[in-house]
């Protein structure tokens, strides 16, 4: 009973916070609404006994939204005083499309003949996940790790303006590097 109440409470929070993302008139509120929605879903995942994934969702998304808020302030120039944000375009199509999609998905969710549970619950879900990750699917996960590292590097390269030639000179021999502000390691 308690589980059901908590689940529905979290569901309401998750969806309303999700709606708030596109309704509120401030960037900070938008990104932290999304963070709240993620936290609610993370807690629901905890209710569904997937502790590791649930906690991970909370961890990653709060961090990401903290960065997101800063991004939005940098690019869009917002402060708490400037709460006028209407960045909607093409709302005419977006609303019916998304309502349609919702009806379709909801119909599927409610009327599809979902199978009853097959297999048994592992004793320790987290340990089972770890074994699964590092056992037969280790190669896949290692590949995911490499992809993520590559993304970080390429993301920085894409976004950065200064290259190593700007820092170290044309022959890459200038030491210390010509940075606008020196770093802490003294390269």
């Amino acid at each position: 009973m308690v589980t059901h109440l908590v689940f529905w409470g979290l569901a309401v929070v998750a969806v309303l916070a999700g709606v708030a993302v596109f309704v509120v008139n401030s960037m900070a509120r938008a990104s932290y609404s999304l963070a709240l929605s993620f936290i609610a879903v993370g807690l629901q995942v905890l209710l569904l006994q997937q502790l590791y994934v649930g906690v991970l969702v909370i961890l990653m998304m709060v961090m990401e939204m903290a960065i997101m808020a800063v991004y939005m302030n940098m690019f869009m120039g917002m402060n708490p005083a400037m709460m006028s944000m209407n960045m909607v375009h093409g709302a005419r199509h977006a609303l019916p499309v998304s309502v349609g999609v919702f009806l379709l998905l909801a119909a599927g969710a409610l009327f599809a003949p979902w199978p009853s549970r097959r297999g048994s619950l592992p004793e320790d879900v987290t340990a089972a996940l770890g074994t699964e990750l590092m056992g037969p699917k280790m190669l896949a996960m290692a590949a995911v790790g490499v992809v993520m590292a590559a993304t970080i590097v390429s993301g920085v390269v894409l976004a950065a303006h200064r290259t190593r030639y700007d820092r170290f000179g044309d022959d890459l021999r200038r030491r210390p590097a010509a940075d606008p502000q020196p770093g802490g390691v003294g390269r």
């Binding site: 569901a11 969806v15 879903v41 999609v101 919702f102 998905l105 909801a106 599927g108 969710a109 409610l110």
Partner: peptide, 10 residues
């Protein structure tokens, strides 16, 4: 799944 559908649509 209903809640998930709502989140996806929003």
């Amino acid at each position: 799944l209903l809640v998930a559908a709502a989140l996806i649509s929003v």
